[in-house]
Design a protein around this nucleic acid. Sequence first.
DNA 1: CTGAAAGCGCTAACAT
DNA 2: ATGTTAGCGCTTTCAG
Lengths: 334, 334
Amino acid sequence: MRTTVHDVASAAGVSVSTVSRALTGGRVSPATREAVLQAAERLGYRPNRAAQGLITGRTGNLGLIVPDLRNPFFADVAKGVTARARSVNCGVFISDTDEDVAAELEAIATLGRNTDGVLLCSPRAGDAELLEVADPETTVLVHRRVPGMLSVVADIADGTRQAIGHLRALGHRCIAFVAGPEDSWAGQQRLSALAGITAGDDTEILRVGSVAPTFQGGVLAGDLVLAGPATAVLAYNDLVAMGLLHRLAARGVAVPQRMSVVGYDDISMAMMSHPPLTTVTVPKGRAGVAALELLLRRIGGADGSGRPAGSAREPEITLATSLAVRDSSGVAPA
Amino acid sequence: MRTTVHDVASAAGVSVSTVSRALTGGRVSPATREAVLQAAERLGYRPNRAAQGLITGRTGNLGLIVPDLRNPFFADVAKGVTARARSVNCGVFISDTDEDVAAELEAIATLGRNTDGVLLCSPRAGDAELLEVADPETTVLVHRRVPGMLSVVADIADGTRQAIGHLRALGHRCIAFVAGPEDSWAGQQRLSALAGITAGDDTEILRVGSVAPTFQGGVLAGDLVLAGPATAVLAYNDLVAMGLLHRLAARGVAVPQRMSVVGYDDISMAMMSHPPLTTVTVPKGRAGVAALELLLRRIGGADGSGRPAGSAREPEITLATSLAVRDSSGVAPA
DNA sequence: CTGAAAGCGCTAACAT
DNA sequence: ATGTTAGCGCTTTCAG
């Protein structure tokens, strides 16, 4: 068995409670504390978090649930969360649900039980299911909004407005929008953002798809877009946009000379595409960080710093988006 | 507080020990088991893993340590691990060390203490440091080999041989190798693989760099390669290869007509590049899965199925690599 | 087959 | 300021 408080206690010649106090910052004489700390160090003592959690009711861990870690979007979120979590000395359980609702619900239940709180990123489950299985007190949604739950989202509507505004300014009057999954929250969000935009009487927005939110989906969309009159296309996300770029190149369509392409997300490879992709920048990692901080505020710090929990000031946070203009968008062809 | 065994026990009209047995598969009468199961289901009971772990000595969790989740290579590994872990009902702590050795060492210590075992992917620390802080009994290295520790690696030497063989067959006689970080294990592995290849008296391998193992590093390498006589280039990894492709395109060098490019890893975006990248396929997720299975075998199953632990049959596993030939490599220019 | 009781490693009253 | 004790939720002897 590993070294326990008892080992440290006898090594330092004190009782276990003194060890506990010395380590967690209770009242101990400086001399004693020093002795304990040294003994702990020498023995390589690491507290057993499970045991700590059992008594304090805080595990010092949190859960992060994402649909797919291989999707760079979610990898970015995970990166932000783990980085921030490390700085507050908080462990992170990650569950990749593989885009499966049942797995997601199961993960919420299990993680909800075994952590201090869970960050639920872009869940695929419906509002009702989520409300039923997740504890609104200890769950924060990321990139998804459900009434009655804490959440952090990006201002997609504004980003969409900027993208369309950019294309209009370049002279485009017929813009295709490649829709993603019909039933996804993010998809509806984009659609309603678009609907909310009176692009001007002279500008037409053509809906294309829906297609899978993947590179392949973009390849498919390429031909669809080319079959219509659009001179520019706004794609569901960067992956789709890159598939589009690929297909356009294969068919000899010059970008941006004959067709402008704009994506959403600004995943890291967006600037590596050919040409580099103009895209709506979504704060992915920052959303994860914000969600973590919201959660910590709600449950009072992972370090058990016992700040009065209370309800968070802002139960629904919206992060700004912007448009990263790169080379895939240009003036409309004459 | 959440529902506990006690709640289930009184709801089912039995004792807590009976509940425990019914749930963990001990001797219980079918009728009693059914009653307990129903009560548990009705109350939405989820065992507290911390408490379970405290007594059984198994947490049912494991740790995965990676240098950078945003790197698609590691995202793939993480995906493989989490998927397999879910199927054996095992939680996964993920720690992203941000390429930092100190953070890595700290993670090994903490996770080692609070999980049943840890999967250490491409650690940046040296052999000695690793040996000092990691428990060889419960740690499995992924994509790294250290004498005395369990590990799963890909057969990079063979992959390298295939890549060089491929280029030679296409007529290339002067091949540049873009080296990555000098001190990295993976870097040395590639270098020694190359050194072990007698490409033939008529073939020269030029070392270029080292550069950062990133897209930017590849961009930098592009000019370096162009300054020499090479007609083909083998890049440290796909990211570097893609940066190379980018720079080559910017400088108007046709790929593969004037220059062939080959990478390592086969990350998902390798086939999305322009042109699609020829690369040494490395089993990333499968390595994670294999490591997990090796660990489980070693510690006897996350479900506590108590198979005799014993030492694993194969403490060092090597997974095969292959060459995915795509459009970035072609016959050497005349 | 089932219940009572001990105790995993730790912290939080409660004593001293 | 420090030691003693109880007990977190659970599994596991040990009785019955």
